[in-house]
Computed example of a mutant assay.
Amino acid sequence: MTGPTRLTDRKRSAILVAAAEQFRVHGYETASMDGIAALAGVSKRTVYNHFASKEALFGETVMTMFESSAGQLELGYQSERSLREQLLELMALKIRTLADPDFLALARVAIGEAIHAPERTLPVIARLGEREEGVTTWIRAAQADGRLKAGDPSFAATVLQGQIKTFAFWPQIAMGAAPLNAAEQARVIDAAVSMFLSYFAQD
């Protein structure tokens, strides 16, 4: 009973790996289901058995790449630890996710498609936003503990992560900037966390 399931899972994984490669190299429009099937070593029918359309496959490919890069991004709030210590750790994981070269390459494709075909890509971007809920959850818990000011936790999370993305995501996506080195990452994280706490932390 378990053998067929494992084989199906392996085929699905192979399709996602092949799709990521095809979308990164060729872009959404040029990438073909035939090419993805050939690279994955499966039939085109098998691809469609797993994914109803190229649009569905593209969305799942972006999500899988993000989740693979994210790793242990969702750290739970710990009341016994300092806010600064926890936020530094959380943002270090965040910046590591955003720096993954494969994810960046696929994100460029997704953002390009959002400009040309928003009806196809905006649902994917919305799903990516949902995967950032871990930071919002952490902030909500800190607010409930009385250590951060009350307010919209989603807004606070956007302010915090936006500072990271300004240096460690958008320049790499839009202008082909080099990834930040370790010292630059530490500087950005320290500044973002310091500014966040200066405004949102309870006195």
Rank of each mutant, 00 (worst) to 15 (best):
G71A: 11
S198Q: 14
T158K: 07
A182N: 04
Q86A: 05
V188L: 08
A142L: 01
V135M: 14
F196H: 08
M63W: 02
F167A: 15
R147M: 12
S32D: 07
F66I: 06
F58R: 07
F155H: 06
A178C: 02
F58D: 11
T46D: 05
H26S: 13
P4M: 07
K149A: 15
L75C: 07
Y48W: 01
T5G: 08
D152I: 03
P171Y: 08
D203N: 06
V62Y: 04
R131F: 09
I111C: 03
G27H: 09
A38K: 04
R24L: 09
N181M: 03
I173V: 15
R45Y: 03
S53A: 15
E60M: 13
T30S: 12
R120L: 15
T2P: 00
L180E: 05
L75M: 09
D152H: 01
K165Q: 14
N49K: 02
R10K: 11
A192K: 09
I115H: 05
A150I: 03
A31D: 02
S43R: 04
G3A: 13
I125P: 00
A110T: 14
F66Y: 14
M91S: 09
Q143N: 13
F169E: 13
V42T: 10
E85W: 01
M63S: 12
S43C: 05
A38D: 11
K149H: 11
Q72A: 14
R131N: 13
A141L: 05
G35Q: 04
D203R: 07
T121I: 10
F200W: 15
T64F: 05
K149R: 14
A201E: 11
I173C: 11
S69M: 09
E184Y: 02
D102C: 04
R6M: 12
V47P: 04
A52E: 14
I95F: 03
L106V: 07
T64E: 13
A183P: 00
H50C: 14
D34K: 05
P123R: 04
L75W: 00
F169G: 09
D9R: 09
L83M: 09
S53W: 05
L88A: 04
